[in-house]
Design a protein around this nucleic acid. Sequence first.
DNA 1: TATTGTTATACTCTATAACTATA
DNA 2: TATAGTTATAGAGTATAACAATA
Lengths: 140, 140
Amino acid sequence: MDTSYLETLLGYNARRAALSVIAVFLQRMAPFGLRPVDFSVLTLVAHNPGVTSRQICATLDILPPNLVSMVKSLEKRGLILRRAHPTDGRAQGLHLTPSGKKTQAQAQITATQLEQDVSGALSNEELQLLNHLLRKVYRR
Amino acid sequence: MDTSYLETLLGYNARRAALSVIAVFLQRMAPFGLRPVDFSVLTLVAHNPGVTSRQICATLDILPPNLVSMVKSLEKRGLILRRAHPTDGRAQGLHLTPSGKKTQAQAQITATQLEQDVSGALSNEELQLLNHLLRKVYRR
DNA sequence: TATTGTTATACTCTATAACTATA
DNA sequence: TATAGTTATAGAGTATAACAATA
């Protein structure tokens, strides 16, 4: 099968690579019950205590209605909690519970270890370079 | 907002980059009425006349039931046609119609031009390198 | 017995409209 | 008048089970 032309296209290659990495991510994160988006949300809250839902939506390109059930689920599982925003009565600051901090920390270790495995054919320098080039693409 | 950790992850970066490129792809391909997957199918048929549905599914990681309606739609639009497979009575070879060839050729030109634009911040050498590294990831 | 193409269907993901409370 | 969070819902994408025809 001749796929040579498709393999010259950035969109095709980036999508195939993303799906390949995410497939492994799903397996390794299954013990934590976290999908990629759950891990992203949890990690943003961990590194930005008090962040609002709107800020997470803007950062991850998620539509607000689609974040509601995710936050609700993470809260129900006792991983995050909502506190009144200090200055804006409409907003709610998100924070990790002690359990949430523990889960996020373990999941982050798993995610970091995963990097080495999914990029098996790449040297560490190539992986750094690849991430750098990808960021330049989506920051456009 | 601190996104520094997420931006070290290949899965995160590849997904963001893919979505960024595909958003532009969708706009530019709208005049042809082609989604990314339609373009991929059309291009595989163009470069591999007589290819079967199963081969396309294996190549693009599409499940057979989900390809049926796509092929049906492309056939209804007069872009592809199905002929009896020369040796396997179960299979059907896919071919482009003259109209399909014309559409695919124009869409391919559009896709190639798009490469330059979505990778605006990258030099041509960097783009080649990026594609090379991505292929190494998903061929793992 | 296995494979190709297909139908039906369920599940997940993403998108839109409209509402409330507050700014 | 605009924004944060929410509800309900629609649409697109992805998945599994089961079937007829052929290998």
